[in-house]
Write a protein that binds this DNA or RNA. Structure first.
Lengths: 220, 220, 220, 220
DNA sequence: TATGAATGAGCCTTCATTCAT
DNA sequence: AATGAATGAAGGCTCATTCAT
């Protein structure tokens, strides 16, 4: 490797540009979608020249894939599935932590706030990137939820009700984010969710789901 | 001269072309989204000239609005919000009808099968069309659900729990369609939902939601 | 010819449509020029169907030619070159009448107000129509002016100064109309010339030109 | 790769392309007008890619503005308003220099021969560019003429006769260019004006105008 | 006769990508 | 290694004109 000058500690110039491009691209893709995002705008925000995307990533699509990977990694690192609740805690507590962390990831306002929007877009128009995201992130997290629900239902993991109830829980979590355009138009007061709002939403979803799961468990 | 076959009675040539374009556009928009859809492809599938979209609709965006209106109208006409359940039926029955009709619209495989995909896209990347769809279709339907939920909770319409619980119900309905790409990859057996599958899904959502709502009503 | 009903006196339906199209076209051509004028707009204003131009005139260019002919005929009919001043009047009086009638034609605000603009455009981008307009209208009028100027200079018609001075007279007449865009921007108070303004302008041009011509005549 | 020849010193490739486009555009705009001019034709003549206009100028309209600016700058640089006559020279001499330089700019046959045609077109169908040209070039030049005329009339600048007489002078200058299509058809011998012809024309206009202005000044 | 739905060439512009430097 | 000028395909849209009725 060629010797350089002025290399920031721990990250050489190339890596800096790559990261800047990924973060700029994440924002742009989240705002306008893959197709409408332009390489020009991404390079402009990433303070790189117009050819940088092709130089560093080969093409626009590969960049998108990298962005998706990066977003998932950062989101799960910032808000792990159970936050600070341990596996020994009662299922009710773990369910609430799961729901809350899910909402926190989706509604995060930080520099990776585009995580939620990107994933929503990926649902509608999946790219090649989705496959690996599912295997690496979604499937393990799904398993976590199933375990909780099975414990609440007091039944084996492969009982059909586990899947159904897990879906019902997750569906409520993604809904607020997924249908946000409709939500904010119909209920402007819900437009921006602060920390308290997210906690309150987590409470409702947990309460609603727990009541339902317990009733279903009781039907036996 | 273009020879047409199977002209429905009472529809002149112009109307036929319009309808062909709308249906072709519905399919294309659903497949690749508004931005990626090309007027050329729409006209090709609609067996019309490249200028036909501009001639009949003015521009691509107006065509899109018409497609959305058409899709909504056809879907609601085919599966009205309460199917054959009347307003005098008990709230439980009306809730199930509401849920089932919602799922039927979304999973419809008929000629307007793009209704669900279009609406999903609109959630993620709303266009100017969303505003009018909300006012014309979504708000009234939302009101219907709130009425049922308020009755089940035995509280006034403007009680905060009505909104929360209604959202929880709707979220479960849209989830299966919205997250289908993930779902089919994780559970291939759910890839295609037949009539029985939809009924069974409606049963679960209704049961789950009723149990939750009743528990919440009882907390009072 | 086929028998019709409701034929207006002296002008059949076809002639009415033709005239409406010519007048609409005159306005549109004057406003935006030949190229920018659209057949659609002309037919709309002429209250005729979109195919009327091609039906009545063959194509857009032929229509333009007809418009130019029509405009010249109407303008000269409304403001003849010497108004009510006879050929026996002194040259000074005839010169003023010539100048005034020229200005009146160009600044006419009536239904053929587009005469001036059309002719201006024709100067810049002459069409096939110009040739015949020159022979039929411009050359005879030019001859009239030369006769006056020669009389004032007291020299034969073919003296070089006759041409030069005639041009100087005409140039002042066309200037106010030709350069109107610049004029109105630099001197907003000159934007609209009323009857008094036109008279006053004619006074200046006549006075200026007479003084010059007489001085040149005196130089001998 | 495109090989270029004859690159002027101090002008990089980009500037060369820009200039080639401006000169090609000047010719095309002069020939057929702004609307009818096509970006394709301009790029073809400028030996650039179809996208070059948008790359270098943003859009066709901005290119047009640049062309107008360029033409004015080059014309005024080549033929300054007073040529080599200084401000201390008598008003008569300065008037003749003003008239002559005006004619020289308009009738210039060099590489920017389209200056006159462009300005003529702008008079008839002004674009957004006219506004700035007026402020930057026309108004200052107009002021120059007014100063001369006021001196000849021996009256203040804001006397109404100054404006009227200045217009009479300018009108004679622009006339020969503006009405050239009619002129060349009626007097073929005037079709091409050589240097001597332009001088002779300047003589006439100056003589004619001076005689008139002096007569008007004497009326007082 | 007179209409207007339909046509297709051609317009300006945008865009990801390339390539000589 | 990194740049940015240049590319050309393809996009939406406009328009005069045609042709079956």
């Amino acid at each position: 490797m060629k010797t350089r000058i002025n290399i920031p500690e721990g990250e050489d110039n190339q890596a800096v540009t790559r990261r800047q491009l990924i973060e700029a691209a994440g924002a742009v893709f989240a705002e306008v979608g893959f197709r409408s995002a332009t390489v020009r705008e991404i390079c402009r925000r990433g303070e790189a020249n117009i050819a940088a995307v092709n130089y560093h990533f080969g093409d626009k699509e590969t960049l998108y894939l990298e962005v998706l990977r990066y977003a998932n990694a950062r989101a799960l690192e910032k808000y792990p599935p159970f936050l600070n609740v341990g596996p020994e805690a009662p299922a009710e507590k773990r369910l609430r932590a799961y729901v809350l962390s899910f909402l926190l990831r989706i509604f995060d306002q930080g520099p990776t706030s585009w995580y939620g929007k990107l994933m929503s877009r990926e649902m509608i128009e999946p790219t090649a990137a989705l496959e690996s995201i599912i295997e690496e992130k979604i499937r393990p997290m799904s398993k976590d939820l199933w375990t909780i629900v099975a414990e609440l239902l007091d039944c084996p993991l492969n009982d059909g009700r586990v899947r159904q109830c897990s879906f019902s829980v997750v569906s409520q979590c993604v809904f607020y984010h997924h249908c946000r355009p409709v939500m904010t138009r119909m209920h402007p007061e819900l437009a921006s969710l602060d920390a308290a709002g997210i906690e309150s939403l987590a409470d409702h979803i947990t309460r609603f789901s727990l009541a339902a799961i317990k009733a279903i468990a009781a039907r036996k």
